[in-house]
């Protein structure tokens, strides 16, 4: 079993759960978003929109929780062996991911608010609109939402590519420490 909280060598169960839950949610939301905008108007499209919005709001809540969790936990440092420019890239990439995890749902929330559509999260409760009704604001938010989407695709590609490079090429524990597996380092410390 891995600990709930982070240690200096690996991500705890809390951080891992949030990471993989959001990974699944973000992937689902992106596919939903892409499919729904290409559907003809109708009930099916409405239902996918509804699901996409509910999922987006859930991801917004999760990223807030995740930032809080990150703040009250230690962050496992990057390996000493990492060159400076790669450290810089990793930090910039992760900041970009957090920014996009916030900006994607927020811009979507603004699109819905500017259209003055009600937003009921998974049929459970209704949340208030962020902005007054405005067609021009809705257009700006739509453009941003699409731009952030492509930005997200780019940064996620680098994120996943980087993790795979660390695992298969550099053969370090960067990917393993985000997986629910026993780590060589904690085996030593526990036994």
């Amino acid at each position: 079993m891995i600990a709930i909280r982070n240690t200096t060598t690996f991500w705890g169960a809390g951080a891992q759960l949030l990471h993989w839950l959001m990974a699944a949610g973000i992937a689902t939301s992106m596919v939903l978003g892409w499919v729904m905008v290409n559907l003809p108007p109708g009930a099916a499209q409405f239902q996918l929109y509804s699901l996409h919005k509910s999922l987006g709001i859930t991801l917004l809540a999760l990223v807030a929780l995740r930032l809080l969790w990150r703040w009250i936990n230690v962050t496992p440092p990057l390996p000493e062996s990492l060159p400076r420019h790669e450290r810089w890239l990793a930090r910039a990439g992760h900041r970009g991911l957090y920014a996009l995890m916030l900006l994607m749902p927020l811009s979507g929330y603004v699109i819905n608010s500017a259209a003055n559509f009600p937003l009921n999260v998974f049929g459970l409760f209704q949340i208030p609109n962020l902005t007054p009704a405005s067609e021009s604001l809705g257009e700006v938010a739509s453009l941003l939402h699409l731009t952030f989407f492509w930005g997200f695709v780019a940064v996620l590609t680098a994120h996943i590519g980087g993790a795979l490079r660390h695992h298969f090429v550099l053969r370090d524990n960067i990917l393993r420490r985000m997986l629910p597996v026993r780590h060589a380092s904690d085996d030593r410390s526990q036994s």
Binding site: F46, Q47, Y49, S50, K53, N116, F117, P118, N120
Partner: peptide, 8 residues
């Protein structure tokens, strides 16, 4: 009325 479960 309601739209996608939300009231308006």
């Amino acid at each position: 009325a309601t739209q996608q479960g939300g009231e308006f």
